[in-house]
Design a protein around this nucleic acid. Structure first.
Length: 260
DNA sequence: TGGGTTGTTCGTAC
DNA sequence: CGTACGAACAACCC
């Protein structure tokens, strides 16, 4: 589920389904060893309150109110927020269950336990403390050019670095570089200002498009990498082949021809 | 069976 | 300091 567009879709879901309802209980699910979830006292802080607004910064979703407290959710690799109406059972792998007035409930599902939920006082303070860079859809062009013009790491690793830019991960960094025709291994500071500008434009347009489709990949054009991101398959843009390489600790998928 | 995964963190090294 | 790498975390999928 987990990069900027997927998290934005989750934020919208919370906005639609879970706002302005008094929280009656916040309970832990089954098998909560290892995963970080709010403790007894933190969960109690939410009871009796309402979420009246939501926010998102990079891959972090927030729900809270002017006076706080706030809940912040990180989905990890396989986390999901699932609103539902009781008495239906919560989904498998529910790690946290919030019950609202009426019969509305919200499950935080996290099979691989790589996500977390925290209760915090203030999102801005939290974002600063976590050292997150500007959100990838909010960063302005000049800041982007400045940051990337002086980083020596591989461009893909730089795009995925949450301290530089919050919200891009393995999947969408591949798509952005595919669109721009850049090799994921090239050094960020060796790119011209014009090329970095093209990269910025591709990033904005790709993220906006995926957000506009609520991160439903079926609705994306057939010539996007994400639609056929398999090693050895034909490039949908040229007569190249999709190949892989390890970059920034992750597997990069790219075209061996139009991305050099 | 072994290897891979839309994520992060930590130790280590240069 | 900035950067790079492997391992770890956990469970599922092929």
């Amino acid at each position: 589920m987990p990069e900027l567009p997927e998290n934005e879709a989750q934020r919208r879901l919370l906005e639609r389904e879970c706002l302005n309802r008094t929280i009656e209980s916040v309970e832990l699910g089954d098998d909560t060893s290892y995963i970080e979830l709010p403790g007894d006292n933190e969960r109690k802080r939410l009871v009796g309150r309402q979420f009246t607004e939501t926010r998102r910064h990079g891959k972090n979703v927030f729900a809270g109110s002017k006076t706080g407290p706030w809940m912040t959710v990180h989905l990890g690799m396989t986390g999901q927020l699932i609103p539902f109406d009781e008495p239906a059972d919560p989904p498998d792998y529910t790690k946290l269950l919030i019950r609202f007035e009426g019969n509305r409930a919200l499950a935080f599902r996290c099979p691989r336990k790589l996500g977390h939920v925290r209760v915090i006082d203030d999102p801005d303070e939290y974002i600063a403390k976590e050292g997150l860079g500007p959100d990838a859809l909010a960063i302005d062009r000049d800041t982007f050019l400045e940051t990337f013009g002086k980083t020596k790491s591989a461009i893909k690793a730089a795009l995925m670095s949450q301290e530089k830019l919050a919200g891009i991960g393995n999947l969408w960094s591949d798509e952005i570089l595919f669109e721009t025709g850049l090799n994921p291994q090239c050094r960020a500071n060796e790119l011209s200002k014009d090329t970095l500008g093209e990269l910025y434009d591709a990033m904005q347009s790709i993220l906006e498009t995926v957000v506009s489709k609520d991160a439903d990949y079926e609705k994306l054009p057939d010539d996007w990498l994400v639609r056929g991101r398999d090693e050895g398959s034909d490039c949908p843009r040229c007569d190249g082949t999709i190949v892989t390489a390890k970059v920034g600790g992750r597997t990069a998928y790219f075209c061996d021809k139009h991305q050099e």
